[in-house]
């Protein structure tokens, strides 16, 4: 069986000439289906850059990225949006919920773009919110929710489409210890139910939840700790 994520010689350069920043310098990474991986590394080492490319939010300067066995290199914007919608659930450090919109509508959002019918949409969104323990907050807007609750809504949104991979960029970075624990427990459960999870973190306790930790140094994978 092919790996869910297979990245070969990935490079990402911001800018050009003297001011060019080489965020990724020939990075290789393979993630098998059902794995739970923590990515660690110094600030500026290229972790977010990598994850954004894995989430098809950004495109690499060169290198190949096979997602679920599909080569994404020559995908156009339309096909990439389809991939983002069907295969990927992304959780941001800063939550990124649509403002002035209820938790339920936020979770329904990917399903709308997937063309799911209204009734089924509602049902699945409610199930996802139930999974993150927010069944009683469905009609709250982001500004009426705590940080931890907002992040749980964001996770519900990431998993509502049953994506092949869930990517999380420092999902607990803005949360206190209790909220972090809740979020990590949800990710643990996702992993236990067979989902592939990749998260970025600076904290060893968070990384301890993962099956293995990938260290990124200067835009390359330095070593794999089991």
């Amino acid at each position: 069986m092919s790996p869910v994520i297979e990245v070969r010689n990935l490079r990402k350069t911001y800018g050009a000439g003297d001011t060019a920043v080489h965020a990724l310098r020939g990075l290789d990474l393979t993630v098998e289906k059902g794995e739970y991986i923590a990515i660690m590394g110094a600030s500026g080492s290229g972790k977010s850059t990598l994850l954004n490319i894995l989430g098809c939010l950004d495109i690499p300067t060169s290198g190949t990225y096979l997602l679920d066995g599909i080569d994404t290199s020559d995908f156009d914007e339309e096909q990439l949006s389809l991939l983002r919608n069907r295969k990927i659930g992304f959780v941001f450090q800063s939550f990124n919920l649509v403002p002035r919109t209820t938790a339920l509508a936020n979770v329904e959002l990917p399903l709308v773009y997937a063309g799911v019918r209204r009734a089924q949409r509602r049902e699945r969104a409610l199930a996802a919110l139930d999974l993150v323990g927010l069944k009683d907050r469905t009609h709250h807007r982001p500004n009426e929710l705590s940080g931890g609750q907002q992040q749980r809504v964001a996770i519900a949104r990431a998993l509502v489409t049953s994506p092949a991979i869930v990517l999380a960029d420092e999902p607990t970075g803005n949360l206190d210890t209790d909220s972090s624990r809740e979020v990590l427990a949800i990710l643990d459960r996702l992993h236990a139910s067979g989902r592939t999870v990749v998260l970025i973190t600076h904290e060893d306790e968070v990384a301890a939840h993962a099956m293995r930790t990938v260290r990124v140094v200067d835009g390359r994978v330095a070593g794999v700790l089991v």
Partner: peptide, 16 residues
């Protein structure tokens, strides 16, 4: 624009 980014991140096509 951030909202647009969020929508695109969850898979909104350009046309929508």
């Amino acid at each position: 624009i951030r909202e647009i980014g969020i929508r695109k991140a969850v898979g909104a096509p350009r046309s929508s």
